[in-house]
């Protein structure tokens, strides 16, 4: 079977603060995404000016006509309740990480643990940014981390500011979903 049947389904972008969830959805969404950015008052956690506290929402149409609803979560653990709301009913999850951020490998565990229960087995793709920064762990290190836990998921090096990179993540996830269509990916 090739690809998901034409229909409508939901993909969730998650990962820690500053990983690039909002940037990724803006890079590929058809039309302006819905954003819930507010001023970031916790510059210790991350230096950026704004942060997502509700969700990001965008939409794309795939070549086969299926519509993908894209949701981006907040990154901070205090918004865990939002992770569960957004994770519910997701066909698949894309975990984004910034390899240059401290504790990036541990963050992988945090988000995989939080979202694995929401998705059918295997519907997970990991996108790692800034692997070129000196001393940042490589994509292999993230893959090994998953492997050690018996989780099989593609790990791709991405720059979330580039539409092509983000689309590659989505296509990879859609491929996985396609191979599981028999198990009832939302049509």
């Amino acid at each position: 079977m090739s690809g998901v049947e034409a229909g409508e389904f939901k993909i969730v972008f998650t990962g820690p603060m500053g990983a690039g969830k909002t940037t990724a959805i803006a890079a590929i969404s058809e039309g302006e995404p819905v954003r819930t950015e507010v001023e970031n008052t916790d510059r210790v956690a991350h230096a950026k000016e704004s942060t997502t506290v509700g969700f990001d929402f965008g939409r794309i149409t795939l070549a086969d006509g299926s519509v993908v609803r894209l949701y981006g979560t907040p990154g901070q653990v205090r918004y865990r309740f939002m992770w569960d709301i957004l994770g519910r009913g997701a066909a698949g999850v894309i975990v984004l990480l910034d390899a240059s951020a401290p504790g990036a490998l541990v963050q992988l565990d945090v988000f995989v643990d939080a979202f694995i229960p929401h998705v059918a087995h295997g519907a997970l793709v990991v996108g790692v940014g800034r692997t070129d920064v000196p001393n940042a762990p490589s994509t292999d290190a993230f893959a090994a981390r998953l492997d050690a836990r018996g989780i099989v998921a593609p790990v791709l090096s991405v720059d979330v500011r580039r539409q092509g990179d983000v689309m590659m993540l989505v296509r990879t996830l859609v491929c996985i979903l396609g191979s599981h269509t028999a198990h009832g990916v939302p049509a």
């Binding site: 819930t36 507010v38 509700g54 205090r78 918004y79 309740f81």
Partner: peptide, 17 residues
Amino acid sequence: SARLAAIGSSLAALGTA
């Protein structure tokens, strides 16, 4: 209060959106 603050901020942001 930490939980109310987090959930409340999401609702306020969704209200704004």
